[in-house]
Design a protein around this nucleic acid. Structure first.
Lengths: 189, 189
DNA sequence: GCCTCGCCGTACACAAGTGTATGGTAGAGT
DNA sequence: ACTCTACCATACACTTGTGTACGGCGAGGC
């Protein structure tokens, strides 16, 4: 356990605060990320927060850093495990099936929205979003090329693929299961 | 001028407050819709607000009503003008080209995000979003069927079409113009 | 010429959140 | 045992926002 804080039950570290911050963001966007409510949620007072962070903006930066890494992770590691046994089509299929059914994924979807709305007024967040979008679409394009498409076709299809994934976080449609089946057919068939 | 308020320069009506509320929402989400900042933006005090609205929640409801109507309007009237001279393909093409290039459309995109993030915690907003999503997708499906697709294919394509439109409001991609050309080819070609 | 009424300003009490300064405490080191 | 240090609580001053009560003012009706 090479943690920043060595031990203790009530001992919090930066990661715990960031985690709670994303919980709050999933419910109410970046404006819901407030020091006092977070402290109550964690069972401590603001004194703890201002020990780990200079101010609220420092927490924002820590959130961005975490999201930047975690969002890349979501694309790479989560799909890549199982390694070479999977074909590109299987990996794309995995991507289509994982979001956003479970409660955990619903949280991820809300965070996606929150970060992107935040990025409309914060340049640092916008930069992170641009980066993640590039990383993801490049990955999708790569998979589609391995699946047999030429570079140009793969680029177009990657956008559609990504858009469809994001739409599940954004749209309020009725039959999500049916939609997912449709997508699989339209984008991979 | 059949306004609610007959005349006067500083005289505001409900519509003016709702308009300002959406401006605020486009910048900071539903949490940025606050009475005091709105009043300052409009050059009045809160006294005016609490004359037109019972409380802040009443403004929220007025916003939802306005969005519900305006969002349907965006689909119907905006594309349908020019009437019968346009083919279904031309109308779909119009839809693909209008969002979200102009500053006005950027505002609309931000509002879309704001409403949908809000809908994750407010049931009334969620209901409005569900309704609008149904209306829009039904319209897209209808156009695609008139374009020659059978009902089932049109439904699937309508989702992709809608998802691609929404992705422009959500994603931070580099070449929006290129993307739009690609979409036209992929979805209508 | 008053009076009502729509519309807005002002003032107040209250709540929630930020940041800061300072004090307390448990554990590890020596 | 003494101290140092990481971590947290407490108390304070400040800001921003909500809702409410009340007062003012100009335009029409009678």
């Amino acid at each position: 356990m090479s943690e920043t804080s060595p031990s203790g039950a009530t001992n919090l570290d930066v990661a715990a605060w960031v985690e709670a911050a994303f919980d709050a963001m999933a419910e109410g966007g970046i404006d819901a990320v407030r020091v006092d409510p977070l402290a109550k949620r964690l069972g401590v007072t603001r004194g703890s927060f201002y020990w780990h962070f200079a101010d609220r903006d420092a927490l924002y930066l820590a959130m961005l850093k975490h999201w930047r890494e975690g969002a890349s992770y979501l694309v790479y590691a989560r799909v890549e495990r199982g390694a070479d046994s999977k074909s590109p089509a299987e990996r794309l299929d995995t991507l289509l099936s994982l979001p956003y059914s479970s409660p955990r994924s619903a949280r991820a979807a809300a965070i996606e929205l929150g970060v992107r709305l935040w990025a409309r007024r914060d340049k640092r967040a916008a930069k992170a979003v641009r980066h993640i979008d590039r990383v993801r679409m490049d990955y999708f394009q790569k998979l589609l090329m391995q699946h047999g498409l030429d570079k140009d076709q793969a680029r177009k299809r990657a956008f559609l693929f990504y858009a469809a994934l994001m739409a599940e976080a954004l749209l309020f449609v009725d039959n999500r299961d049916q939609t997912r089946v449709d997508l699989r057919e339209a984008l991979l068939g």
